[in-house]
Each structure stands twice: as structure tokens, then as C-alpha cells.
Amino acid sequence: MSEVPLLDIRNLKVYFPIYQGLLKKEVGTVRAVDNVSFNIKKGGLFGLVGETASGKTTIAKTILGVVHPTSGEIRFKGEKISHLNDESRRKLTSKMQMIHQDTSSSLNPRKKVGELIKVALDIHRIGTAVERLDEVSRMLQYVQLPPENFLSKYPAALSGGQKQRVAIARALILKPEVVVLDEPTSALDVSVQAKILNLLTKLKKEFNLTYLFISHDLSVVLNMSDTIGVMYLGELVEVGGSEDILVNPMHPYTRALISAIPVISEKERNILPKVPPLRGEIGSAINPPTGCRFHTRCPYAKEKCARERPNWVQINEKHTVRCYLVQRF
């Protein structure tokens, strides 16, 4: 490889033990993330798609150090960051930021917008008091909130979109290199969602950012990302350029996801792959199915799928998939 990827995740496993009873006996583990590897180049936009409980958010939290990995490693600019102590981790916070899904609880309800954003500068002791205030106003302008109207508002007085803009301003004020967006728009209305997504695209260019975009909404991810990873029950099942994923989805789960997008025009309907509907729902990560974890819902599942986990198959330079079906093609 010629270039060191900005963020490199290798064989990441995150297991949570389950304790039960008075003696806190360990009765099992939740395999939230199991053997996930992918990397993001500088300036890239990696989209991570999957349903509820597929482990997307756990990956995000592990990257940011909120959750500690069970095994595997995460490298940032080639340096291992997955087992740092608190102090070194704190230094990294200005390089990596996260934007949460839940707009209503990600902002402290008892602080004004100005304080909410300024706090990042206070923590890292950047600039004088006046400079900090100026910087806050500048950031608010970047996210298209006029500072004179918003600086002294409480989050309760803001709409969902405005709250998310404040969250973006706060994340970007430290000039991070990587921003993890955990479902940044799923709590918002479509008309606002479009605004926020376009703003994020604009800011990415202006601040030269690298995004990890996590969402359950494939139509959003297809539009935002250059590379997409599809997750199912803690595992990546398919990774590819967004064009590849849309035009030539290989994994039956990816196909089902795409075909389930509720589209509105005839033109879009024609693109959708025609697939038989999936059975049932996503299983539990406590005792995940053996072999390919998707086999319990897969319309094409064979006996072999339940026994052995399929290996990665390279389709083209960027596109890889993990399914026995492909090997027969």
C-alpha cells in the first residue's frame, strides 16, 4: 500500500460480558462487533449501513475510545490508538469528533448555545476569552445559524435541525480530522435532513474532513459516501464503492436492504433489485447463528451456510463480499 490510511480498523472484536444474579456470574457474551476490518483514506467518506443491533454504533464508540475493544486494533495515521490511556486519549479528542443521533439529549439542556460550543475551547485552553467567543460566532456562521440570534438560546428553544447544527459546530470547533457521524439525521424531517446532509458535505470540503458515516438508511448513505460497508449482526458482509453496491449488490442482505428502500418515483423503482422478501428479523448477538450469520433469514441459504463462515471474495479492486452465493457465479 502506497498510502497509510487515516483510520485503519483491523480484526476489531468488541464483546460485552453479561452478568447475572447476585454473584455477578458471567452467563454469556454479546458479540456486538466480530472481526470487522476496514479503512478510511484521508478525505474519504466511509458509509456504514446496517439495521438496529448490527454493531454500527459500537464501532463508532470503540473508535472514539468510549468502549474498549476485546481484540483487534484501531490505527490513526498508522499509530495504534485502541489501547491508549486516558491522558493520551484526551489529546486525541481534538483530532476525532463524533456527532450523535439524538439531537435532544446530546446538548446539555441547562446551557446556552454559546456556552455549549465554547466548552470545547475551554477544555483544551485554546485562545483568550475574547478569541474563544469570536471563534464560537465564526463556527455558528459556518453552520448557518446567525450568532446574534442563537448565542444565548437554550437548546429547548431550538428545532431538531438547529440542535444538530449546534452539535456540528461544537464538533468542528476543535478542527478535527476525522468526524464520526452516528445517524446524524435519522431523528430529523426529510426537508431538514437534506439541509444537514448538504451542510455536512460542504463542511467536509471546507475543513478537509474525513467522515465515517453511520446510518440505517441506505438511500442516505448511497448519496453521501464513496465507500460503503454493509453490516449484519456484528459482521461486515459486503464492502464496496457506492456505485458497486447500488448497481451490483452481491450479498443477499445488501440486495434486501436496497429493495426495501421506500422509493417514490418510477425511475427509482426500476433500479431496485427484485428479491424475495426476507424472513423474520435480525437475530440476537448473544448467541449469533453459526456459519454465515445471515443464513437464518437468507432466501438462498444452503446447508453449507449454516456450517461454515464464508470467506471474503474480491469482486473488483474495492468491492469485496462474504457469501457462498458469489463463489458460484
Binding site: V190, Q193, K195, N198
Partner: peptide, 22 residues
């Protein structure tokens, strides 16, 4: 039409939100 334009489409056409708030 604003709402429809705001939807991200899988044809990857441009999408645009509606300015302002309710």
C-alpha cells in the same frame, strides 16, 4: 415538491431541503 426534492434518491440525483422552519 420541496419535500420530494429533499428526499435522497437512489438515482443519486441532487437533493435539497426547504429553507426555514415551521
Amino acid at each position: 415538491s420541496g419535500l420530494i426534492n429533499a428526499l435522497p434518491k437512489i438515482t443519486r440525483e441532487k437533493f435539497n431541503g426547504i429553507d426555514g422552519t415551521i
